[in-house]
Design a protein around this nucleic acid. Structure first.
Lengths: 223, 223, 223, 223
DNA sequence: AATGAATGAGCCTTCATTCAT
DNA sequence: TATGAATGAAGGCTCATTCAT
């Protein structure tokens, strides 16, 4: 983790230069998924980072996995770090987009909770390599974690927090609870389920546990 | 993370080498805490790993922080990895010991839950550097995480799981809950509180949140 | 300075390739100056080499400066070295041509000396970028220097040497002097004036010093 | 020529740390010549740079020539550039010291001139590898040249200039001459003799030409 | 036991050059 | 002719580890 370059967003095919003298390659925000080389490199990075860990993975490994020359990686990403950051940003953006889309028609706080939990775990459970990267490799350093925390997590916790507050206003949830703390508890529970799933040898259905977690979150353990 | 050497336990005062070129040095299991150089090196490692991250920290940094020559580190620890593993093992052992001691006279499941939460967060909140290492640096790779999971976490979750099952038997907790999942949820909640505290700029009292978490865990959010 | 390709001369409009995969492209000897792309590339190279130094300059920089694609450079020049060699050869040729033209009607050895010095310094002082390349960048390696020495310098020194010998024959110059050494001394003096001018922050008139140098060369320092 | 590190002076055996936490290795100014590793590396660098040119030389080559591991070079020099800078600084310092020592008892301006020329050419002629480095490799970039100019050359020219001015005051030299220009002319002449000697295949005695150059400088070419 | 100079394998990144379009 | 995306060899530098003292 040498230098940080969080300026850019997602990689893509080297974009047509808008100005003549663009030195630093501008990278488009959304590559045509599955079509171009940047996409292939990013996929390769996910696989390689998951397999060997970010620090042990070599850029050459990623290039090989993407069936690309080593130098080509640098046409699409500023450096090794940027690969990880890009994976994170892309994942976060897609997750939040999916979440918002799914939550769109749901106004009942309880139902929203259930939806969030299901989408969260279904997403993680869908791509094990990606899950390893986001659940493990991304949390390598406080630097990344802080970025993670500052960027995506804050927003995610915000959604839950608002939902809780809304439920309290509607009289559905206990008024004494701190929405912030409550949001952290739910996220922590889901995150732990995810991490446990990754570390488990068994390939059980992670999403299937969403309802149980929400049930516990709603009613507690007390009889 | 080059090679792995999980064979040994905690470092200690270097035993006399039996042969001249003993590659693997024999390290006592339990160093007289706080007394010898191995202890100083371990403390230094915690500080340095917290400050710069495990991968960016150099063994020479740790040695300097411990006011010791670089080579000396290798008299007490097999390699850089072993420093991290030792920190983890020592922390885990102490945490479990403290937990057991405190839980010793407490039989009421609810009270046990409260105790666990308080001790957990108080421990993390007591030493920020150590917390950074255990909450962040230790989770760098699946390799470490798996060891973490296999060694300490399993036991920790076991304690909670048993407690839940006991509560269920006593009719205190809802019978339908999976003790295992329930344990993960509680651990996840506490762990998230801990990680959030580390990433937060504010130095609030982490332990103070234990009761709120337990209350939520016990009664859920539902009104 | 990877490979050397001193076979060819100046770049020109790319000749039609005879075979499909002709590795060495045939380049005309004398491009229509100022008209074609090769000329633009050469100019760009001078600017870029002067600005960043030959080794730090990238071929892509030259291409960008010439408003041409990177690959186009290779249609006109064999490789990066060839750019430098071409600059040198062109400059040398032009300098010698100008020198000969100006010296054409001058037969008096003293006047010839004065003319040479004036033309030399005026030439260097006319184009600072080019001067940087010829005075500094071109002298990077013994390889280039040897070529420089073998090609242009030898001829240049020859002109001075003959002039000195002629003057001696005419009884104008001291008979004891070695024409060769004397030529080197004059060239060294002029060259040093040129290099000093480049390194100086002040943009004084270099050519204005020609007469003083010649005066010194003619009469020495002795009172 | 990537980064520049002109802060330090000559390399030497890793100096005993004065303070405990010296991160950046301080390098002593004058290594015990011929005794330590830094010296050996510097000698190796001169040989390798002379043989292959600075840019084409690899740090590994230098290390091999010095019979040292590649990493060891970095214990004594900050980076590749620093090797070249160190050669230059050391040479300059020694040359100036020798010059001053030899000039010490000489007050007659003419004799001083003769002495300077002899010492200058004798020095260059004494070590061909070193001469190649200082006459050729060191003049690679304006960056180095500027440093060269600013550091040693300025002082060198200053000595000649003062000598000229002194001679003028004493009525030995022509009053109309600019001491500065005159100094450049002499230096340029000597420098050219040196460079020519390097490029020449014949291994003639460079120092032997000193008197002829000075004679020309004193009396000019005019009969 | 302790030191710290020395080692050398390892890796990210650059950039001259190619070639399909 | 022209393009510029792709290539991949090359090399400076780091740093965990060793070992002579």
């Amino acid at each position: 983790m040498n230098r940080h370059s969080s300026e850019d967003d997602l990689p893509a095919s080297p974009a047509p230069r808008t100005t003549r003298h663009t030195r630093a390659r501008r990278l488009r925000t959304a590559p045509a998924a599955g079509t171009d080389k940047g996409e292939a490199i990013l996929r390769a990075a996910i696989a390689v980072f998951a397999r060997r860990g970010f620090f042990n993975a070599q850029v050459a490994d990623v290039a090989r996995e993407a069936r690309v020359a080593a130098g080509t990686v640098y046409l699409y990403f500023h450096n090794k770090d940027h690969l990880l950051v890009s994976i994170f940003q892309r994942t976060m953006r897609e997750a939040l987009a999916e979440g918002r889309a799914v939550l769109d028609g749901v106004s009942d706080p309880v139902e929203r909770l259930r939806t969030i939990a299901r989408v969260h775990l279904a997403r993680v459970g869908r791509d094990r390599d990606l899950a390893i990267v986001t659940q493990v490799e991304l949390r390598q350093s406080t630097k990344f974690l802080e970025e993670f925390s500052a960027t995506g997590l804050r927003e995610y916790l915000g959604v839950i927090r608002d939902l809780i507050a809304d439920g309290q206003r509607r009289g559905l949830f206990r008024p004494g609870l701190s929405p912030t703390l409550t949001a952290k508890v739910l996220f922590g529970a889901l995150d732990e389920m995810a991490t446990n799933w990754i570390l488990s040898r068994r390939h059980y259905d992670l999403a299937a546990e969403a309802d149980a977690v929400v049930d516990l979150f709603l009613h507690g353990v007390k009889a």
